[in-house]
Design a protein around this nucleic acid. Structure first.
Lengths: 112, 112
DNA sequence: ATTTTATACCTAAGATTTCTATGCATCAAA
DNA sequence: TTTGATGCATAGAAATCTTAGGTATAAAAT
């Protein structure tokens, strides 16, 4: 709660990037991972995460594998072949955006 | 058309930043400015821009001044006092986000 | 022993932002 | 005289995220 610094579309990219680095992960794991990696900067809410995972799966970018750990369910997600390609695209897009915004926002460049 | 996607909330920040640098601007001018500054990377659509300007005005961050140039209307927007403060906040937030995403997305850091 | 916290999944309602598609009007250039 | 650029605007749809719940297991704290 209370983070709100996510920008539209960035969640998908974050998920895909994590799965590119980690082969397979489950939802809760993703939220914890992002929290740690960003030192609490970004908090992925579950209300955003799970629908996003379902959409990525529906779009054919992720595969699911259900595992039972003790008496509890876990849904492991991993990139499909197509998902791997799309990850590369999204990452390139994001980097372009970051570069552009860096330039726009950087105080060194006052925009004339 | 066919440009990159804007990320949620970034348009507001872009507008505010431009007005911080330029004192006053009108809508169409903003779209052209962004297009030039980003070499066509970012295209602000008018369907996004005008509602955004109206919202910033309604929120008390911008003032409007209508000017007549020839026989044509122009609405010049400029930061209010409050708008100047909020601009600083939004810019700081954006920079935090850029830094965080840079870190998440940078291929040099494979996320473990 | 029981309450709280952490783990683990989920959805629905609403707000917000942006995109697409239009519309109107002025003016310069082809 | 038609096209393209300038300049404003809105309506409907798509996409994403927040808020606010819900269910359930397991560990830790009281």
């Amino acid at each position: 709660m209370g983070n709100q610094k996510l920008y539209k579309g960035s969640l998908q990219t974050i998920i895909l990037k994590l799965l590119e680095s980690n082969d397979k992960m489950y939802g809760y794991e993703i939220t914890q991972h992002v929290k740690e990696l960003t030192k609490g900067e970004l908090q992925i809410t579950e209300g955003a995460l799970y629908p996003a995972l379902h959409k990525l799966e529906a779009d054919g970018l992720l595969d699911v594998e259900v595992a039972k750990v003790g008496n509890r369910l876990r849904k492991y997600y991993k990139l499909t072949e197509n998902g791997t390609k799309e990850t590369a695209n999204k990452l390139a897009e994001m980097q372009e955006f970051l570069k552009t915004m860096q330039h726009l926002v950087n105080p060194k460049f006052s925009l004339e």
